[in-house]
């Protein structure tokens, strides 16, 4: 690209598009682009500011391991994955839903047909881009990711999670059915880079990869994650193309820690929301483009904070609304 077409010199985070409209072969009413920034978060203006970060609310298809605090809050929704997903967008105000197939974590899982059904149900119930998390067991990865990918064909969902020793099925599903991939490595900048190289070898284009450097829980190693995100952003801006990818952050164990688990029932929601908020907010400051939480109350708090950080840096419609409109 010539200088003329690229008025902002310097290195940028690669842009990743999530969701597909009807015209693009999907059914989403909104699509997002994440990434694109040429500065540290919230410091740039104009094109260098990149696209605004997105807030995802995590839901699951098998609530047995989900936090009782969240289950109490969402009530009956937990029994109806589609309704839960719809509420995430409308009632709770999330930018996107992250559907976690916790059912696949039980030993001997083999109800693969249910995965496709649930994906279709959630697609039908929602209008925004989706993140879908499959299994964590290599033995069933192939079947799980094929089912999920196939059921969501054309929707350009963000599929998780590829890891260094098990990335093939996720990548294959993304390639076969047109999705993007979450690439997770355990808090290490070089491992993150290596996984991107491995994914590259499957022919998955770089603009379909979102990095997950793994987020430790607040008080339980969060500082490692915070710094590794800062480092990734920093070397990306220095020109390391293998790391110039948007990041996703989810402190998934937030609601399992002692402080939250043992909180007085009266204040449990408060504690849960704060524990998620401080980690997710810090992740945004460190460079995460997608932050994921589980308590609906955290979404609103993050939304306000994000608005204050983005003030004036993005066109209103992109920052808070429908990009495709």
């Amino acid at each position: 690209m010539s200088e003329e077409h690229n008025p902002e010199p310097g290195n940028r985070i690669l842009e990743v598009r999530l969701g597909a409209t009807k015209a693009e072969g999907g059914t989403r009413e909104r699509v997002y682009t994440v990434g694109g920034a040429g500065t540290f978060p919230f410091l740039g203006a104009g094109p260098a500011a990149g696209h605004p970060p997105r807030i995802a609310l995590e839901i699951c298809d098998d609530t047995r391991t989900w936090s009782p605090i969240v289950l109490r809050e969402v009530g009956d929704l937990a029994e109806d994955t589609g309704a839960w997903a719809a509420a995430a967008e409308t009632t709770f105000g999330a930018d996107m839903v992250r559907l976690s197939f916790t059912s696949t974590r039980q030993r001997g899982f083999d109800d693969f047909a249910s995965l496709g059904t649930t994906v279709e149900e959630v697609i039908g119930a929602t209008k925004y881009p989706l993140i879908v998390e499959g299994s964590t067991e290599p033995a069933i990865d192939s079947e799980v990711y094929r089912r999920i990918g196939e059921a969501a064909e054309g929707e350009r969902v963000l599929l998780g999670t590829a890891e260094a020793d098990r990335y093939r099925s996720v990548a294959a599903s993304a390639l076969a059915y047109g999705h993007a991939v979450v690439a997770q490595t355990p808090i290490d900048i070089n491992l993150a880079k290596q996984l991107n190289i491995l994914l590259h070898e499957t022919a998955l284009p770089p603009e379909r990869i979102v990095i997950d450097p793994y987020t430790g829980t607040l008080g339980y190693g969060f500082e490692y994650s915070y710094s590794v995100m800062e480092r990734i952003r920093s070397v990306a801006l220095q020109g390391d193309a293998d790391l110039a990818r948007p990041m996703i952050s989810s402190a998934i164990d937030s609601l399992n820690v002692k402080e939250v688990r043992e909180a007085d029932p009266e204040t449990a929601d408060e504690v849960a929301i704060r524990w998620e908020f401080y980690a997710a907010f810090s992740a945004l400051i460190a460079g995460a483009e997608i932050v994921c939480v589980r308590h609906p109350g955290t979404v609103a708090l993050l939304r306000e904070a994000l608005r204050a950080l983005l003030e004036g840096s993005h066109p209103q419609e992109e920052a808070y609304g429908d990009e495709s409109a």
Partner: peptide, 18 residues
């Protein structure tokens, strides 16, 4: 108290020697 505890924990995290 919930916010205070989370804020103090964040501070403890950020100010540990990496």
């Amino acid at each position: 108290p919930a916010s205070t505890m989370a804020a103090l924990t964040l501070r403890q995290n950020i100010y540990t020697d990496p």
